[in-house]
Design a protein around this nucleic acid. Structure first.
Lengths: 235, 235
DNA sequence: TCAGGGCCGCTTGTATACGATAAATCGCCA
DNA sequence: TGGCGATTTATCGTATACAAGCGGCCCTGA
């Protein structure tokens, strides 16, 4: 199988597969708790089992997949509680990231943030929702990288992807005001105001948590009154 | 090769190898920047290349190993700056963990913390330094688990191992007062005093940072005056 | 009808084999 | 003698093959 479904770029198959599986998980194409059978995945991606296996280990380390020896891997399950818990971690980490980014005040980083904001404005206007979600993650990650702390960047990447997952699972859209909050955070960082940057980042995540909780509540109500019409975000 | 060097436990070879490689990295047996050649590692561990490869991916996700496609993996390099940066992240995360642990105030978790403290007292008295380092990591991790936040636990594990690595590389011992700080943190958590628990955790990490910086300074001085007598912690 | 036990298939764990690529070395030529 | 290119070697990337375990199913017996 020399020609792949994923395209024959220079990246290793392993990287392609990891990205593709992560995408399928984030998009819900692979549902929570779904079994990840190495053979099937390999076949569906047009590769052998080895790249798939290595990908699964990475995704497990990132918390997207659960592996039980000799039994196989499944997409992790995400309870509403676990979803909410993530926001506590985000407030701590993203508050720190914003503070450090403001302290550093790198022009290049500011430029990158601005670029993401511009792209997002377009995507929002065009109504490309999946792109907006990706750009949201990209913005937060760019803040993390603006902090100039390598380990912070390393840990933030899976954390933010997980956050994106949480939202995609609950169908909790935040809408345009999220981006005005981003803009305001960007300004505080660019101005080098550490306290303000941290405060705005924390407030932003807190607002996201409220959106999440509201969505969970809606889903729960819908479930009891209409009998599970909405896709259940958790079990 | 059915009989392994690592012992024929029920755990998969991949788990054994991951643990062993991580141990060798943390202990300095595998030096920073050292190449990790799959063939050699496989031979030296008495396994095939597959488990080794999967382990390398996991360690890369944790930040202990750097992989360059088609060139191979090396033990990550840890500059003094990167070492210091880690403390910023730790203060944010461990402060949160301590606060949540105090809020939760689970008796079982308190019991586990106490158990680690007891074991550590013994190990310190017996002068078993490696065990003390492991127990230090175990204590911090137990605080994280006492917080009852699954993602927090997930991310703290590699973070704390990295912290242990940082210290082992600089030969910066903290001594017994570190454990009195642990005890004081434990008390605040057991008492359910959120503010105090967070403050003590942050102060504890800040103290660790000072120890680290002092050790780095000593090394730097030793390097300039005596000409690299001490093992260089970074490049 | 139901409980127990053994067989079969699916899936994972591990090893091995082959192809491809980048680095290193050696020799040739200017 | 120095630089450049071809060959060689080391190592990774990927695929395939084999072994082992776990669960489900069917069959048997009361």
């Amino acid at each position: 199988m020399a020609d792949l479904t994923l395209g024959a770029a220079h990246r290793t198959l392993r990287d392609e597969v990891t990205g593709e599986l992560r995408r399928r998980i984030l998009s819900g194409e692979l549902a929570q708790g779904e079994r990840l059978v190495e053979d099937r995945l390999a076949a569906s991606l047009g590769v052998s089992r080895n790249p798939v296996r290595e990908s699964i280990r990475v995704l497990a380390a990132e918390g997207f997949v659960e592996v039980i020896p000799r039994l196989g891997a499944t997409v992790a399950r995400l309870s509403a509680e676990e979803g909410e818990e993530l926001f506590d971690v985000r407030m701590a980490i993203e508050g720190l990231a914003a503070r450090l980014a403001a302290r550093k005040r790198s022009p290049e980083a500011a430029e990158r943030l601005r670029a993401v904001l511009d792209q997002a404005k377009e995507a929002v206007a065009a109504g490309r929702l999946e792109a907006v979600a990706d750009l949201n993650t990209a913005f937060h990650l760019a803040v993390g990288e603006a902090a100039g702390n390598s380990y912070l960047s390393l840990m933030m990447k899976p954390m933010l992807q997980r956050a994106q997952w949480v939202f995609s699972q609950t169908a909790a859209a935040r809408g345009p005001h999220s981006w005005s909050e981003h803009l305001s955070l960007y300004e505080a960082i660019a101005a080098g105001d550490e306290d303000e940057a941290q405060a705005r980042a924390v407030a932003h995540v807190a607002a996201a948590r409220r959106s999440f909780l509201a969505a969970v509540r809606r889903t729960a109500e819908g479930r009891t009154s209409e009998g599970r019409t909405a896709k259940a975000p958790n079990d």
